[in-house]
């Protein structure tokens, strides 16, 4: 059981680090999905461990909602790409302090 815990925590941390360090928007979105995938695995794991099914229900909602989020995110990246011709965060900065 504990190996799965480490696996999901590893996936989550990998995704979190990716969202911080990656420089292109597509990779950031992918890392976001990795984070949510890790969390979903964790919910399933805890659900098995405690014997309550509520958390497995939550996994479905996590999957649905992360799909919505990626759909919105991708559409925004495309609309920005049409104007700026790039998906790299360094070249996109418009709003200044």
């Amino acid at each position: 059981m504990s190996i799965y815990y480490y696996l999901s925590a590893f996936l989550f941390c990998l995704g979190l680090l990716g969202t911080i360090y990656k420089k292109d928007l597509i990779s950031i979105l992918l890392c976001l999905e990795l984070m949510l995938g890790g969390v979903a695995l964790l919910f399933v794991l805890f659900s098995r461990a405690t014997g309550f099914l509520d958390a497995q229900l939550q996994v479905f909602f996590i999957m649905i909602i992360s799909a919505c989020e990626v759909a919105i995110g991708l559409s925004m990246i495309i609309s920005l790409y049409r104007k700026k011709n790039t998906v790299y965060t360094d070249e996109l900065k418009i709003i200044s302090e």
Binding site: F12, G15, L16, T19, L25, I28, L29, L32, M35, L36, V39, I65, E69, I72, G73, M76
Partner: peptide, 10 residues
């Protein structure tokens, strides 16, 4: 989107 996704994940 990006901030929101990350904070929801955390």
């Amino acid at each position: 989107v990006l901030y929101g996704g990350i904070s929801a994940g955390i």
